[in-house]
């Protein structure tokens, strides 16, 4: 049996009570659920703030300021590392007041521009290129030609699987097509082939979401079982002393 210190005992009982409070939402919205959720938001927000302070703001803004001599601020490297970030921070803080918020546009524009570039760069180098290469790789001769000693049925299964994967990718992209012309009533105008491909794409989307849904449901059921087991362990530990 688990040995509890007093602090662990109080913490474990608190955790069990909070778990029951959250699960009480199954009976409908109630004050216990709200208590647990508001407490959670407060703690999560405070924890996020303390992590941002210790990992970003202190080493990036405060520490360079307090560790420099006055003359050191005029060096070009310190202007980039200390003065400009402080100016941008002060401009961003001006966003708090409606009277001064128009001066806070520059840091916001910088943040949005860099964020957009990271999104575009990440989408190209992290998804578009690798996934396109992987899709193309399903049709290379080394993948499609029969291997030495391979049974016909295994080779056929490999070919059919490669075709299905490619068909799924292409038809879903045709369903997602962003640049269709619109008719007079605003509906998307597609050719007959595009309409057929879009329907096949929707079938593949339904299959994919079905598999994802099953995976998510199985994972959350495991967590539900773990929580119930935790509650059972706490109650049995308390009852047996």
């Amino acid at each position: 049996m688990t040995e509890f210190t007093t602090l662990d005992l109080v913490g474990t009982i608190t955790a069990a009570l909070l778990t029951v409070m959250v699960l009480s939402y199954l009976l409908g919205d109630n004050i216990f659920f709200r208590f647990a959720v508001y407490l959670f938001i407060g703690v999560a927000a405070g924890y996020a703030g303390s992590i941002a302070w210790h990992n970003v703001i202190w080493p990036g803004l405060i520490d360079p300021l307090v560790s420099q001599e006055l003359a050191g601020f005029l060096q070009p490297s310190n202007i980039v590392a200390v003065i400009v970030p402080w100016l941008l921070t002060i401009l961003l803080l001006l966003k708090v007041s409606p009277a001064t918020s128009r001066y806070g546009g520059l840091p916001l524009a910088l943040l949005v521009g860099v964020g957009a570039a990271v999104v575009v760069g990440g989408a190209i180098s992290g998804t578009l290129i690798p996934q396109s290469l992987a899709a193309m790789g399903t049709l290379t001769p080394s993948t499609l030609l029969p291997q030495a000693g391979e049974e016909l049925i295994v080779w056929l299964e490999r070919i059919i699987s490669a075709i299905i994967m490619l068909l799924a990718t292409i038809t879903i992209l045709m369903y997602f097509r962003f640049t269709t012309r619109r008719g007079v009533t605003g509906e998307a105008r597609r050719s007959k082939l595009e309409r057929i491909a879009a329907v096949i794409g929707q079938v593949f989307i339904a299959i994919t979401f079905g598999v994802m849904y099953a995976g998510a449901l199985a994972a959350t059921v495991v967590i539900l079982i773990e929580r119930i087991q935790f509650l059972r362990d706490v109650v049995s530990s308390l009852l047996t002393g």
Binding site: G113, L128, I207
Partner: peptide, 25 residues
């Protein structure tokens, strides 16, 4: 079946995200 579909969805999402980012840029 689901892997091919997931690849199509991923590519579609990446195209959409990239285009949204490009509109900002």
């Amino acid at each position: 079946w689901a892997s091919g579909g997931a690849r199509g969805i991923l590519l579609g999402v990446a195209l959409g995200a990239g285009l949204t980012g490009l509109r900002v840029l």
